[in-house]
Design a binder for these strands. Structure first.
Lengths: 196, 196
DNA sequence: AGGTTTCTCTACCAATTGGTAGAGGATGCC
DNA sequence: GGCATCCTCTACCAATTGGTAGAGAAACCT
């Protein structure tokens, strides 16, 4: 019950539950119980469930943009940048599975809300697309529609990170060693998919 | 109302809603209203919501196994088989977006239920993995962990088919022509990712 | 001290949830 | 006709949903 202010703890608990169980399936009581506080305390900080959802989404979007953006900008040119981006997405995904799960919830939201969140990530998307196009021009990457390529890479990485059932279906079991292998194979997959 | 028996119509309406809005977010009243029948009629045919869920899932799994299986078996060897599989997944996905959406819901289900569904698709998975390994041995495909490769390809295809927001985020707009292009680029992506 | 703001609470509400009980209306079989 | 089976219905239920109203404690400002 300590340290972080109530509002912060609500946001974190909401993120976890929204991202794993889904937004609709998560009740305010659920979250309140998780925080150890009465439901009305939630409704004091966020006047309605929707406002809580918006706050959580914005925070996740901003966090991802900052983390991935920093990782990408800090990496040298070439495939190392893709590698840095994938790692930057993977690390938080392993630490908090709910994070990417929440990104997927966007598809269930009203278009306006989804667009509002997406627009916050747009700079990062544009940066990535520009990078891909630059590499194509330099002949280091297979020539293709850079925007679609971006969507495919996103889909592959986020899918792998958020679909444990699919991984189990092919006999993959979680674990530190196998997780490392998963990341290595995933990078090899992307490298092959992108290489000229 | 119409030709098909009530039970059938319930299953179809349930599939659509479960797949798009999610299982938890879909009430029996929703489905009943969609079918044009009283909620208790649903509960006559399926004694509880869970049994309805199970019935819908099994039907989807079986349908996918049959359709994809037929497409794959009918295609010549080589990358054409992958192409056939992707097309077989894409066609129903376009016709009924709920179908693949429901597959994704598996991650929210109890492990037992998810495993039950997955086990129905296992033969298809094994077939695909065996194919990939055969092609690797023949030197036509990049050598890699065939099972993970399978998961990646699945993740990419299903992700693209079920995440309209991600596609819109990169500026893609739905339409017949752009859909054709999407499929072509997706196949090129997979071909590059798999090729030796 | 007195008032204001900040924060959390108990008590309550209408609507919706999955589900039960049981009443009919068909339809076919004898 | 009588009877049973199949099918759909109205009426109801307890639990849970998001949300309102307002009380009370604590801290800050003057």
């Amino acid at each position: 019950m300590a340290g972080k202010p109530t509002r912060e703890r609500i946001l974190e608990a909401a993120l976890d539950r929204f991202g794993t169980a889904g937004i609709d399936s998560t009740s305010l009581d659920d979250i309140a119980r998780g925080v150890g506080v009465a439901k009305q305390t939630l409704l004091y900080w966020f006047p309605s469930k929707e406002e809580l959802v918006v706050a959580v989404l914005q925070r996740v979007a901003d966090e991802l943009v900052v983390e991935v953006g920093a990782a990408v900008r800090g990496a040298p040119h070439g495939f190392a940048r893709v590698e840095a981006a994938v790692t930057a997405v993977f690390r938080p995904a392993v630490r908090r599975p709910a994070l990417l799960g929440l990104v997927r919830e966007l598809n269930r939201l009203s278009p306006e809300l989804a667009d509002a969140v997406v627009s916050r990530m747009r700079p990062l998307v544009d940066l990535a697309v520009a990078y891909l196009e630059g590499e194509m021009d330099a002949g280091r990457l297979r020539r293709a529609d850079a925007r679609l390529l971006m969507a495919f890479a996103y889909s592959t990485v986020v899918g792998v990170a958020t679909e444990p059932v699919a991984l189990r279906a092919v006999g993959w079991e979680p674990g530190v060693a196998s997780l490392r292998k998963l990341r290595a194979e995933l990078l090899a997959f992307l490298r092959a998919a992108l290489a000229a």
